[in-house]
């Protein structure tokens, strides 16, 4: 990895075609020298991602998902990614996990490190029991048969599925499914954990339990990228946040600043929409 790392906390100078939002950078700059020492586990350099759909559509079939995104992920940090639906958050995670490749730019992962994407519902087989699905999911995430078997006890216990653990998943309620999915995902052990909208599961009781479990995982040595709509969770879990807007990095910096700016932006655009509606109504 190159040693000329910039401070990890940077405010983008290219805020996309949206109106620019200013961020106080003073606070984050203080952390700069400390960040330089850290090992970049994963690096995206000018990454763009677009694809053509097979059938012709209004945009001549090309979808531009990410546009010139650059970012670094440091060892042991929890990086949050926020943004509205469809701004490319999931695609960004898929690029980081190596599932997809960039159309332009480079994705570099530190040699020997593995990244795995955690997301709800790892393709459950509805006919099979929760136990069998959990076993298969654990194996797909790289466990050996023995390891997968050894996880089953704790998955059964944590998911609180009781006897249902041995019943077909097709008979599960939505809450039961997500409990199983979350617990199965929690068992993965990788260097970089990429988490996509995983904490909004089950009832209040289970959600709290899931958050506590996730927090203890995140606050440890684990390097995490965390995508969520739940901005309060992002604030409490992440040390650094990136805000994506229309496929570009709108802002990057400490979590409170970026989340607040994002929320303000969402609020402002709602006002603009409402004003437009009022004008249209007249």
């Amino acid at each position: 990895m190159s040693e000329d790392n910039k401070p990890a906390i940077v405010v983008s100078d290219e805020p996309g075609d949206e109106k620019a939002v200013a961020f106080p950078t003073g606070e984050s700059a203080v952390d700069g020298p400390v960040e330089i020492e850290r090992l970049a586990m994963l690096e995206l350099e000018n990454v763009s991602h677009s694809y053509r759909t097979g059938r012709k559509s209004f945009d001549s079939g090309t979808h531009h998902v990410l546009d010139q995104v650059s970012l670094k992920l440091y060892e042991g940090e929890t990086l949050g990614i926020i943004g509205r639906n469809g701004v490319g958050k999931t695609t960004l995670l898929r690029l980081m996990a190596g599932i997809l490749g960039p159309t332009h730019g480079t994705v570099r992962i530190h040699p020997g490190k593995t990244a795995s994407l955690l997301t709800l519902g790892l393709g459950f087989q509805p006919q099979l029991s929760g136990r069998e699905n959990a076993y298969l999911a654990a194996m797909l995430q790289g466990s050996t048969r023995k390891q997968a078997k050894s996880f089953l006890g704790s998955i059964e216990e944590f998911s609180e599925l009781g006897e249902s653990f041995d019943e077909p998943v097709k008979d599960y309620s939505a809450g039961m499914r997500s409990r199983l999915a979350f617990t199965t995902a929690l068992m993965t052990h990788v260097d970089i954990l990429l988490i996509d909208e995983i904490l909004s599961v089950g009832d209040a009781h289970f959600r709290e339990k899931a958050q506590t479990a996730m927090k203890s995982r995140i606050t440890g040595e684990q390097t995490v990228v965390f995508v969520s709509h739940a901005t309060s969770e992002v604030k409490s879990l992440c040390s650094r946040v990136i805000w994506l807007e229309k496929g570009k990095v709108m802002a990057e910096g400490d979590s409170t600043t970026v989340v607040d700016a994002y929320l303000q932006h969402v609020k402002d655009s709602r006002v603009v929409v409402r004003e437009k509606e009022v004008v249209a109504a007249r």
């Binding site: 087989q125 509805p126 006919q127 099979l128 069998e132 076993y135 298969l136 194996m139 797909l140 790289g142 050996t144 048969r145 077909p168």
Partner: peptide
């Protein structure tokens, strides 16, 4: 992925699919 893990996974996926199919 080591080759042994790969084939174990192939085998597990196949057997699970057969089981799921039979359950239908």
């Amino acid at each position: 992925m080591p080759l042994s893990q790969y084939f174990r996974l192939v085998d597990t996926m196949a057997r699970m699919a057969l089981r799921a199919d039979a359950m239908k």
